[in-house]
């Protein structure tokens, strides 16, 4: 019921959604993170994502398991994160969850993406016309 992936290939969002379908689930909630064309007002050309694969997969699974502990009614959880070079509009991450009713699906989906951003060992470098920055590296 927990499906985790880290891939250097484009994420198939429709296929990801199918993995959380469940006859007992009246709600499917999805978060899709895409590459934005600006960061703090600066035009972004592309992003590069780097991962510590074994730890990222382990931590992603832990985050999903924590969500199931907190919301035991969760039927299925899928988290897929992209790595490598991404351009504007590309999908960087998909979180999909299914639950009997909608309220828990919103809460669990938000918990997973918020916690992922804090603990999962993935790093993003933003490339601009005139330079590049590792996001969040410096205060």
């Amino acid at each position: 019921m927990i499906h985790i992936d880290l891939t250097d290939q484009p994420i198939d969002v429709a296929a990801a959604l199918r993995t959380v379908e469940d006859d007992g689930a009246g709600a499917i909630n999805t978060f899709i993170g895409a590459v934005r064309n600006k960061s703090t007002g600066r035009p972004v050309v592309r992003l590069e994502y780097e991962a510590y694969d074994s730890m990222a997969l382990h931590q992603l699974r832990k985050v999903a398991e924590q969500a199931v502990e907190q919301w035991p009614m969760l039927k299925k959880v899928t988290v897929i994160h992209r790595k490598g070079t991404l351009y504007i509009g590309d999908v960087a991450v998909v979180v999909a969850v299914s639950t009997p009713h909608r309220a828990e699906s919103f809460a669990a989906c938000q918990y997973i993406i918020d916690t992922l951003k804090q603990v999962v060992t993935i790093w993003k470098k933003e490339f601009y016309e005139d330079g590049d920055v590792w996001v969040a590296a410096h205060p």
Partner: peptide
């Protein structure tokens, strides 16, 4: 510092068999 795919406490002691990694601020998502 990560030891064997888990975040380590400052007082954790290290051995040669550990898989050790330095983890700068993460920025996934």
């Amino acid at each position: 510092v990560a030891v064997n795919n888990e975040y380590a406490e400052e007082e954790t002691t290290l051995t040669e068999r550990d898989e050790i990694a330095l983890i700068p601020p993460v920025s996934g998502g």
